[in-house]
Design a protein around this nucleic acid. Sequence first.
RNA 1: CGGGGUGUGGCGAAGUUGGCUAUCGCGCCUGGUUUGGGACCAGGAGGCCGGAGGUUCGAGUCCUCUCACCCCGACCA
Length: 402
Amino acid sequence: MKLSQSLSQTSKTVAHDADSVNAKLLTQAGFVKKEAAGVYSYLPFGRKVLAKIKQIVREEMNAVGGEEILMPALTPLENWKKTGRDKVDIAFHPTEKTVLGWSHEEIVTPLAKTRVKSYRDLPLCVYQIQTKFRNEPRAKSGLMRGREFLMKDMYSFHATKEDFEQYYERVKAAYFKVFERVGLKSFLVKAGGGEFTENISHEFQVLTEAGEDRLKICEKCGLGWNAEMEIAKCEKCGGELIEKKGAEVGNIFDLGTKYSDAFKLNFADEKGAQRKVLMGCYGIGVSRLVATIAETCHDEKGLIWPESVSPFQIHLIVLGDDKKVLTEAEKVYEELSTKTEVLFDNRDLPAGVKFADADLIGIPLRLVVSPKTLATDSVEIKKRSAETSELVSLKNLLAKTF
RNA sequence: CGGGGUGUGGCGAAGUUGGCUAUCGCGCCUGGUUUGGGACCAGGAGGCCGGAGGUUCGAGUCCUCUCACCCCGACCA
């Protein structure tokens, strides 16, 4: 992409109402634009990051046997009446008989009912990546807590407790993998089940001052508890607990039979007897991940994207307005673009502006083509995370695989 | 929902004992000079001061109502 033609543009100043680090950086670097409190447009750069994260989530959910679906955002109120969750006040009601989905147990359970008749149909696991709507009493911290946000929600259906528990552990492992792949270190934390279940739930927390949750993490074994749980020592190893702040990027729940009861989701076992289906549900805050990465991966100059989720792999800068140099840079851009994603800063601006913007946007690798580098048939290469740069010959650069 | 704060060209700000044509920086447009860490000169475009009502000869400045946004708290699925 040529920066001169992209909708995403950088800004030297930030809107006065952007207070959190993620809101400031993501806005200034052209990833998002705020439309209202807790409601954002994703500009080209931001949309690309979302797409990268979604793909990683998708791969890991597929790996544990999840099948992707897409349920409606506009859902019938009568479904919610069956579980009593029609009274929950964070729900948006576009009309008297509809609810904008803030979770999808009320849709997925009847859906599973059309498929699950016998123990042979279990287990079953489906997920979606979709916009959720929650009328938060207080949207805040940029993309951390929005009224509209992107979420991956997966639902599993089981015949036995053993099967559920085994699957729950598999998903736990998959979650750790997802967060690691997007460049974050996550902690498993025990928490309450909220509106979803009476049972204990598990949250995946990324330690950051920008997070909203207070946690107690065991310094020995790394297991944690949400501070709401009130606990003095580690339940597992007896170790001391340290208070930390965290951003909840994932939450998994043992739903038991709460929803199968409400919707009479039963199955015939080996003996032909009707039994209740056991359910689990597993969420990942996809847009909150964008915020968390921004909060975690930056320095005073700007963002520093992990390669796995960076909107581009290479930020190519051309300096000066010499025709030959421009032509050569254009060639480098064309060739590299056949192999990887390149952001080409072809704007006619002073070097300082371009370097500052490259630091702000935070693409992992920066290339510079200038009269100076071309004098030795080379290109300057520098990692965003590194202090120093080096020269690579054009030939070697173009032969490289990214 | 309680407490605190902020709304003035695209962005950031100044202007508030009421008073000429609303100011500055960044950005934008034109021309020229520049070109390895946020350049310079000259010329230009763009706002009716969040909204409504009121007081006044006169309101960005005062009063009333209202909306939006940010922060703290409560809540957090």
